[in-house]
Amino acid sequence: MSAVIPTAKPAIIYPESDGQPMADNTLQFRWITVVQGNLAALFADRPDVFVAGDLLWYPVEGRPDIRRAPDVMVAIGRPKGDRSAYLQWEEGGQPPQVVFEIWSPGNTMSEMARKHEFYVRYGVSEYYLIDPQQGEAVGWVRQGARLRMVDEMNGWVSPLLGVRFAVTEEGVDLFYPDGRPFLTFEELARADAEERAQAE
């Protein structure tokens, strides 16, 4: 009688892409890059803060069907470095604490409700939804097992990031803890050129 050789279980694949575009339009893309880039700059000197944009997050090992790709996410306590996906069980079980979603006309209420439910279930501490077209922002902060909506976003300061929100008739603006505004790369280049010109 020949011995039965156990067959190895096939490796579980966690795709690096969900097949969806990063953004639906230039306004949404600009906001994603501004939020991600400025948060990365804010924590540039912190080796234990990981900031990413449009990265798939898998919270449950063995379940590649359970996933989300926040527009921007911040994982405090996790090392910097490139990743093909955020596999939570390989990150010390740490979920991203802060996520940002940038609303675009292609979003639906049911889609955003599913995202909100996902962030509640899998441990996000702060969730911010920004609609740059309408100039609106909504925030939620964890309170026990749920995310409680922030009553007033104008002047709100993120407990974990120290970032201040300004929501006025002019639109939404974000500010560093020292009061500097979040800027686009073009605005940063212009400010740098002006500083150099003044120095000369």
Rank of each mutant, 00 (worst) to 15 (best):
W89A: 00
V150F: 07
E170Q: 14
E61L: 10
P59Y: 01
L147F: 08
E169V: 11
E90A: 00
G171D: 05
Q94W: 11
A166L: 06
G144R: 04
N107L: 08
R148I: 02
L87H: 05
V120T: 10
L174G: 02
G123I: 00
V98I: 02
L160R: 09
G92Q: 02
E169T: 10
T108R: 00
L87M: 07
R83P: 05
V60R: 10
V120I: 10
V150H: 02
E111Q: 10
E136I: 15
P64R: 03
R67L: 10
A113F: 08
Q133P: 02
Q133D: 12
W89C: 01
V60M: 02
F165C: 04
P105C: 06
Y128S: 11
G171T: 02
V163I: 08
V150P: 05
H116Y: 15
A113W: 14
E136Y: 13
Q94I: 13
M112Q: 13
Y128V: 13
A75R: 01
R148P: 02
E90F: 06
P95K: 01
P64W: 01
M109E: 15
E126C: 09
G92C: 09
K115N: 12
R67T: 13
G62A: 03
G106D: 08
E90T: 05
G171F: 09
R146Y: 14
E126W: 06
E117R: 15
R142C: 08
G144H: 00
R114K: 14
V167L: 06
W89L: 04
R68Q: 15
D131V: 10
H116A: 11
R78E: 12
E126G: 09
F100E: 01
A85M: 01
I130S: 01
V72H: 06
M112A: 13
H116F: 14
V99I: 08
P132Y: 12
G123E: 07
N107E: 00
S84V: 08
R67V: 11
W140R: 07
M153V: 01
R146D: 13
A69V: 08
P96E: 08
I130A: 10
S84N: 14
M109N: 15
L174D: 04
P79S: 12
G92L: 04
M112V: 13
G144Y: 07
G135I: 06
L87R: 11
G155M: 07
V172D: 00
V150R: 03
P96M: 12
G92N: 08
M149W: 10
R146T: 15
Y122H: 11
D151R: 15
N107I: 11
G123V: 01
R83M: 05
N107F: 05
V124N: 09
P105Y: 05
W140N: 01
Q133L: 14
M112L: 15
V138P: 10
G62E: 09
R148A: 15
R146H: 14
V163A: 11
S158D: 00
D131R: 04
G77H: 07
R164S: 07
S104L: 06
K80H: 04
V138Y: 12
V150Q: 04
E169D: 13
Y86L: 05
L174W: 07
A166F: 13
E111A: 15
Q143W: 09
Q88C: 07
P105T: 12
G93S: 06
A145E: 14
G123R: 08
P95Y: 00
F100R: 04
Y86V: 02
S158R: 10
V99D: 10
L174F: 13
M112P: 05
V120D: 04
V72A: 10
G81N: 02
P64V: 09
L160W: 05
P132K: 06
G139R: 00
